[in-house]
């Protein structure tokens, strides 16, 4: 089989490879953050960079997120292309002013005269009992603010291609990577955290969703881990004769309305699955887009699966209960089909 020849990489190595290639191409690219040097990033996103590029361009920072993310903004305004890592997205609180009021707004407030070509990369996601302050995705919190591109890739191929695009983009990009999709040895071993990644540099656009599986009966839109759960659910539904179309959103902002609407026009049903809080979130946004632009295409009400508006609990029974997974997706789709 041809696949045997494919070059397979884990998510973290795909990301680190994109960064390394861009650092080779452009001396203005540098990385800063906590434990990104010798340690290679707690989630492996900078693995090998210190060895290749040294401490001048791979900077371990103190635990001073406001200072080093703010410094990335200042350096970007001077024409550098910094990549700052916020170790867990949950730590956004200590540096949100720099992100929300400065990184996102300076290009606009300057009438487009100041460019901030920077990447803020950050890990997201739960499912391993890291509790309320280390398990969030906060997709919508970031996608909500105009002025930042926000991406959430779910395959090694996209992690590399979208990281390359993010570094080359002249706008601030929030690059969210899912911890469990990094393919790390100390977390769940998931097949889809390893995938084909070409060695040569390539880009994946920052504004296009990806149809992962075609189907005619229902559209399931997922983000990162939830896309993979949707794929598993789709395989199971297929055995019962239900063919789901699975869309991997990939880009949270800007959002690819066309791909979603075109799919709904075909399937006439929509389920949105999100690992973020339910209210005011990505599921609501997608449901609103479809209601505004394709309401009469729908044969049944839109269903949303998300964290039921509680902080992420520690105990695994509790966490399992609040996280959407393949079982809940299958159940929801079947209910939807029965109601029709």
């Amino acid at each position: 089989m041809e696949t045997a020849k494919k070059r397979m990489l884990t998510g973290n190595k795909a990301m680190a490879e994109a960064i390394a290639q861009e650092m080779e191409n452009d001396k203005n690219v540098f990385v800063l953050g906590e434990d990104i040097g010798k340690y290679g990033g707690i989630f492996g996103s900078t693995q090998g960079l210190m060895e290749k590029f040294g401490p001048e361009r791979v900077l371990d920072t103190p635990i001073s997120e406001t200072a080093f993310i703010g410094a990335a903004i200042g350096a970007a305004a001077e024409g550098m292309r910094p990549i700052a890592e916020l170790m867990f997205v949950d730590f956004f609180g200590v540096c949100m002013d720099q992100i929300y009021n400065h990184m996102a707004k300076i290009p606009y407030m300057s009438g487009g005269n100041v460019r901030l070509p920077m990447v803020l990369m950050t890990s997201v996601g739960g499912g391993y009992s890291d509790a309320a302050q280390h398990s969030q995705t906060l997709y919508a919190t970031f996608a909500h603010m105009p002025g930042m591109k926000v991406v959430a890739p779910s395959t090694p191929y996209d992690l590399k291609g979208m990281m390359t695009s993010a570094i080359r983009d002249d706008n601030p990009v929030v690059f969210m990577f899912h911890k469990s999709l990094q393919g790390l040895g100390w977390m769940d071993q998931l097949d889809y955290a390893v995938g084909h990644v070409p060695e040569e540099s390539y880009t994946v656009p920052l504004d296009k969703a990806n149809v992962m599986r075609e189907g005619k009966d229902v559209t399931i839109v997922g983000i990162q881990m939830m896309t993979h759960h949707a794929m598993e659910a789709a395989e199971r539904l297929s055995q019962d004769g239900i063919e789901a179309e699975v869309i991997d959103l990939r880009s949270l902002a800007p959002i690819d309305k066309d791909t979603i609407i075109n799919s709904v026009k075909k399937t006439h049903r929509l389920v949105v699955v999100d690992e973020d809080y339910r209210s005011y979130g990505m599921t609501a946004e997608i449901a609103a887009i479809v209601s505004e632009e394709a309401l009469y295409e729908l044969e049944s009400p839109i269903k949303r699966l998300a964290i039921p508006d509680v902080p992420i609990p520690y105990s695994h029974m509790l966490e399992d209960f609040v996280l959407p997974g393949p079982d809940k997706i299958v159940e929801t789709v079947k209910q939807m089909m029965d109601e029709a």
Binding site: D90, S129, D130, A132, H134, P311, Y314
Partner: peptide, 21 residues
Amino acid sequence: GKGGHMHLFDPQAKFSCGGIV
């Protein structure tokens, strides 16, 4: 069971802790 090892709260002992440095 909601907090875990980084999030221990014992108001009787006037003790709390958290995961954000």
